[in-house]
Amino acid sequence: MIHLTIDDKSIEVPAGTTVLEAARQLDIDIPTLCYDSRLKPYGACRLCIVEIAGFPKPVTSCTTPAADNMVVRTNSALLHRLRKTTIELLLSDHPNDCMVCVRSGDCTLQELAYLYDVRENRFSGGMRDHNRPDANPFIQRDQNKCVMCGLCVRVCEEVQGVGAIGYSNRGFEAKVCPPFEKDLNCEFCGQCVSVCPTGALSGKMWAGQPRQEGVKLTDSTCTYCGCGCNITLHSHGDRLIRVSSKKTSHNRGWLCVKGRFGYDFVNRGDRLTTPLIRREKGGALEPASWDEAVQFVVTRMAGIKEKHGPDALAGLASARCTNEENYLFQKFFRSVIGTNNIDHCARY
């Protein structure tokens, strides 16, 4: 174990812990933009700088491993000045249209600007013009709001293993983009959207929907597959307007395209809310009660089994069920119906 002192508080951490992680264990707040505990440290935003006794200049706490007897200071006039300059520089090349930005109230940059009281900007000057229409169906890219924290690139590479985006150009004109600056064409899991600290990446479906006021958050479980990812439903009135997932969930906040963006059907008027039964051959599907529907299935299955034997029946299970449900389903077919005709949609 390693002993170190951060802002006069001592702490013991296992070897390999970074100074930032140690400080967070002590509930010491160090600002960050490019840090995410789930990804490799990157050291680009330069906000998590701290002073360490014996080091000639401030270092980024996210990349510096804690060492024995380290004495760390996370706040000083110099650190405050350097952080404020960094935030001011970022804002000097930012649209600053928080009033109409999808991330207002939920934006790290906005919060930092407020905390560091950046009202006027000493560095106003030329700004990037990287916005361009991207026809992909899910992800809204407002590149002029990008702070180049690299979280999207890293999550795509490290977590999703896709690598659909990378960097191009140098210096001030550097930007994140898909290969050859084409439209985004990936699996649209939206992990990039979930880690973006600003409004540079958002869901296209989020546009024009309530952001904070009147939005109700309800924790739930995704029903798309057996993984059972924890999700948080954002609703406004009786409408579902966004799906997110918490970092603390068993799925660590990661979702797939269906879990993150496949919620549109919930708000549709033609969505099925009761079972339907075709009572006569060639007739229309008619609403029925659950009791009637279940009884209908039981009667038909029993009839077929009796008349044609159990192998006349087959069961096709769904990936949307949990493992336990799928286990029960095959058990039902093998033991109750008495057939091995059982398969699963994930095979097709």
């Binding site: 680009a44 960094t86 520089l89 000097s92 090349d93 030329g126 690299g150 210096g171 001030f172 004109e173």
Partner: peptide, 21 residues
């Protein structure tokens, strides 16, 4: 230097541009 900055960190990417301006 501002043209050769890689663009990774904020002070170099935007700071050198502002110095030049």
């Amino acid at each position: 230097t501002q043209a050769e900055s890689c663009g990774k960190c904020v002070p170099c990417r935007i700071g050198t541009k502002r110095l030049l301006e």
